[in-house]
C-alpha cells in the first residue's frame, strides 16, 4: 500500500513537472537532505583564522543540485562563506526569490528555461556558470543495435517541448533522422525532413516513455526517468549526449543570479568551487553517468 502511494505520488509529480521543466528531475525527493541550518554551519565551520565573508543564500532543486551544493559547503566555509541551501520542489519560485533579492543565487535550471522565464516573467536573471547536465540516452527496447534498426521501427520519445526536441536532436546526432534547419530546441515530429528508416516516432508523456520499453524498438529518456526505470546511462544506453554535444551545452544546469551580481565575490567563489576537481569527482563518482559535470 505504502509503496503504491509512493509510486503514485512520484508519477503524479513527474507528470506535473515534466511539462514545464526539462532535465532537472529528482530521483528521491522524499529522502533528500533537509536544508542545513545557518547557525549550525557557522558553529561547525573551522574556527581557524578565516574571517567571515558573509552568507550565500541559494535556492536549489533537491537532487542532484542540493546534494552537489552540500559538497561545496565545507569548502566554501574554509574560504569564509556560509552557504545556506534551501530546497525547492518547483521551478518558478527559485527564480522569483532571486529576482526579488531574497536569495543570492539559484541552481535549478538550464539556459533555455532561464531565457524563456526572463522573457515571460520580465525578470533579470543571468547565468554565471554551467555545472552539470543530465544526459538523454537512447535505450534499447525490442531492438538493441542502432546501426541495424529495422524499417518502420517505433521509437518512443517524451512529448513535452524541450524533452521532445532533445530526444529528436539525439536521434539526429545518431543519424537516424534529419530535422529541418533551425528546428533546434523546439523541434517536433513535424520538423522531421528525412526519415530513411521510416521510423515511427511515438510521442508519450515523459514518465510513460520508459514504461513502453518492451513494446517499442528504442526509447529516448532523460536522466531522471531512466534512473526511475532502473536504467543507467553508463551501462544501458546505446547512445547518449556527449559533453561536447549541442544538447549538453544547451541543457547544462547553471547557477543563476540577478543581473548586476555576476561579479559578486561570493558568487564567484561559489562557481569556482562547483567547477573544481573535488566537485567534478564527486559528481562522476556519485551519479553513475546520470549526472555529468560540465567543463
Amino acid at each position: 500500500m505504502k509503496k503504491t502511494t509512493k509510486i503514485l505520488s512520484l508519477v503524479l509529480t513527474s507528470i506535473l513537472l515534466a511539462g514545464a521543466v526539462s532535465g532537472c528531475g529528482s530521483t528521491e525527493n522524499a529522502e533528500s537532505p533537509a536544508p542545513a541550518q545557518n547557525n549550525k554551519t557557522a558553529a561547525e565551520a573551522p574556527a581557524e583564522n578565516t574571517e567571515s565573508k558573509g552568507t550565500i543564500k541559494i535556492a536549489a532543486s533537491p537532487t542532484p543540485h542540493a546534494e552537489i551544493l552540500e559538497q561545496a559547503k565545507p569548502i566554501l566555509a574554509k574560504q569564509g562563506y556560509d552557504l545556506d541551501i534551501v530546497e525547492f520542489e518547483d521551478y518558478v519560485q527559485p527564480n522569483l526569490v532571486v529576482e526579488s533579492g531574497e536569495f543570492d543565487a539559484n541552481y535549478v535550471e538550464h539556459v533555455p528555461y532561464l531565457e524563456s522565464f526572463n522573457e515571460e516573467q520580465g525578470t533579470h536573471l543571468v547565468n554565471v556558470g554551467g555545472i552539470h547536465y543530465e544526459p538523454f540516452g537512447i535505450y534499447p527496447g525490442k531492438e538493441s543495435d542502432l546501426s541495424a534498426i529495422s524499417d518502420g521501427a517505433v521509437i518512443a520519445v517524451p512529448n513535452d517541448t524541450t524533452n521532445e526536441a532533445r530526444a529528436l536532436l539525439l536521434l539526429q546526432d545518431n543519424g537516424l533522422i534529419k530535422l529541418a534547419d533551425g528546428a533546434g530546441l523546439t523541434a517536433t515530429v513535424n520538423d522531421i525532413v528525412e526519415n530513411p528508416h521510416n521510423l515511427e516516432i511515438q510521442e508519450l508523456e515523459a514518465a510513460q516513455v520508459s514504461r513502453v520499453k518492451d513494446e517499442v524498438a528504442f526509447v529516448v529518456l532523460n536522466g531522471n526517468y531512466a534512473l526511475e526505470a532502473g536504467l543507467s546511462v553508463g551501462k544501458d544506453a546505446v547512445a547518449y549526449e556527449k559533453s561536447d554535444s549541442e544538447a549538453a551545452k544547451t541543457y547544462v544546469n547553471v547557477i543563476v543570479v540577478k543581473e548586476g551580481n555576476e561579479n559578486n565575490e561570493g558568487v564567484k567563489a561559489l562557481v569556482d568551487v562547483l567547477k573544481s576537481d573535488d566537485i567534478f569527482n564527486y559528481i562522476n563518482d556519485t551519479y553513475d553517468g546520470a549526472v555529468i559535470p560540465f567543463k
Binding site: I15, A156, N159, Q202, E203, L204, E205, Q208
Partner: peptide
C-alpha cells in the same frame, strides 16, 4: 490521451 500517446485534438 496524449500522456499515453493517444493523440487527439485536446493533446
Amino acid at each position: 490521451a496524449g500522456i499515453v500517446g493517444g493523440g487527439g485534438l485536446g493533446d
